[in-house]
Amino acid sequence: MGAWSFYITTLLVYFVVDALSAFSLNLQFGYAGVVNFGFIVFQAAGAYVAAVVTLGPSGPASFQQYILGSHLPFPLDLLAATLAGALLSFVVGLFALRRMRRDYQAAVLLIVSLIALQVVSADVPLFNGSNGLTGVTWPFGQLFGATATGSPYLYLGYAAVIGVLVCLGVIWLSRSPWGRSLRAMRDHEDAASAMGLNITSLRLQVFVLGGAIAGLSGGLLVEYIGAWSPGAWGYAETFVIFTAIFVGGVGNYRGVLVGTLLVPIIFLEIPRFLPAIGYPGLTDSLEWVVVGLAWMLCLLFRPRGIIPERRLKAARPASPLETAPAEGSA
C-alpha cells in the first residue's frame, strides 16, 4: 500500500471517529443544551478500555502497567469501550449535571477533564502514566489474519459501517419525540419542566448516551492507531469538536458532517503539507490559532453555522380537527 493511500485511509478513519464524536456532542449540546466541556474524557476512557481489553493482562514484569487487562474477543472490545464511556458519563453526570446553571455545569465538566489528565499522567500503575499504552491490536483483524496496519481498508470499512449505523441512529433519535423533548429543555428548562418533562433525567440520559458513543469512537480510534497516550486527549480536543459543530451548524447533522470535514480533518491536516516556518512546533501551535479563529469568525459572521438547524414543518392532520382542548378534565 502506498504512503498516499495509507494516509488517505487514515484520514477517513479519523473522519469516521470525529463524525461520531461530533454527532454525539451535537446531540448533547445542539439538541439538549448540555455544554459538555469534558467530552474528550469519555472518548479517552473508551479508548483506554478498548486498548487494555485487547492487550492482555499486565504483570509486574510487563513493560507497561495498566488495569483491567484481558483478551476480549471481537466485538466485545468495542462493547466494553462503549460501556466504559456510558458508565463514566453516568458517574460524572450524577454530580456535574445537578440542578445548576449551564455555565457552571460546563465549568465542572472542564475541571473534570483537567483532573482526569493529571490523574492519568501521574498514576503509573493505573494507566501507565504519561507514557500511555502501545501495541494495541485489532481483534477483528486477527480474526481475518490481518493486523490493523496491514489492512487499513478493511478497518476503514469496519469503522465506516459502525459509524454510519450509529450516526443514523442518532439522527433517528433526534427527530423522535424524545429528541423534541431535548430541544424543549435546551430552549427553556423551566417551561419544559412545567410541561411535565423530567429535566434531570433527560439531561442524564443524553449525557450517558453521548458518553457511550464517545467511548465507542475512542475504541475505534485506538485500535486503528495501536497506541493510547493521555497527552493526546487534552481538553483542547473537546474544543476542536465544538468548533466543528459551530462551523458546520449546531443542531443540523449535515452541517455537523461538513464541520467535521473542515475542522479536524482539513484545518488540522493541511498545515502538515506547508513548508516549516519559524521554530519547531510553530506550525502545530498555529493550527490551534486556525481552530480558534474559525470558531470566532463563525460566531461573528455566521452564528448559526454553514448549514443552520432545519425548520421541521408540521404535517397537517387529514381527519376532522378536534376542537375541545380540555375534554380530559371535564
Partner: peptide, 15 residues
C-alpha cells in the same frame, strides 16, 4: 417562555 427554536406546532406537541 415559548421554546424559541421550535415551531409553534412543536411547542404544542412537546407539552
Amino acid at each position: 417562555s415559548e421554546f424559541a427554536r421550535m415551531t409553534v406546532f412543536e411547542n404544542l406537541v412537546t407539552a
